[in-house]
Design a protein around this nucleic acid. Sequence first.
DNA 1: GAAAAGTACTTGGCCATACATAGTACCTTT
DNA 2: AAAGGTACTATGTATGGCCAAGTACTTTTC
Lengths: 117, 117
Amino acid sequence: MNIENTQVQMRKGILEFCILHIISRGEVYASDMLEELTSAKIMVVEGTIYPLLTRLRKSGLVDYKWVESNSGPPRKYFTLTEAGQGFLEGLNITWDELVSSTQKIISINKNSKKKGS
Amino acid sequence: MNIENTQVQMRKGILEFCILHIISRGEVYASDMLEELTSAKIMVVEGTIYPLLTRLRKSGLVDYKWVESNSGPPRKYFTLTEAGQGFLEGLNITWDELVSSTQKIISINKNSKKKGS
DNA sequence: GAAAAGTACTTGGCCATACATAGTACCTTT
DNA sequence: AAAGGTACTATGTATGGCCAAGTACTTTTC
């Protein structure tokens, strides 16, 4: 149990949330997402993002279309489906609650223990 | 891929973080932790928390002592080890960065796309 | 004192995600 | 045509959360 592993575990699920958000803002392909996640200090590699995009598509949350590139092979440009929008709204609530609950726990220090009401 | 499952995934690792925090505030046993997590709207069940506590002990992050109860079998009261304190400090940083990075992603909307600087 | 009920803890198996690694397909350049 | 780069795919491993059943100890009930 090292800290790197716990960091990985903390990110589980949140990566999916972030990617849905990025897609919700407009058509993007995998490298766009990688770049944005990296610039936000969320390290991701191809082997993570491609299977995730496949899962999202199979679940009907995102869709894609092939777009030819003038500098390489064609790209899959992703968009959010209606189901994906609904799903993302649910995740927004989940995220807010998770952060709120966690902040509640970690903001209590030794000298301000909760009293049984 | 339903939302319940994604919620479960989002909590991975964070539960460990919260439990280390609770233990860092003073000696507690499993039911105390369950109660506090539940009151913070983080739902946990026995089958999750006991294996987690065992992992933490095997990793040397927490220690425990048996304390007899006057209303049932003896209880394991947990405390944080020095290694656990160091680990927790690392997780505090990880948590802050994760929240910060995620908020960065999700606060960008369609009309304020990042410009390549 | 034995059976029943309650509390605390333990164990084994299942599932989903992140990741590493290797591989495929297409395009451009030389 | 060969070499290199870009984009996507597939397979296997590790980990954590959860369910479900089980163990052990204590108190209550008869």
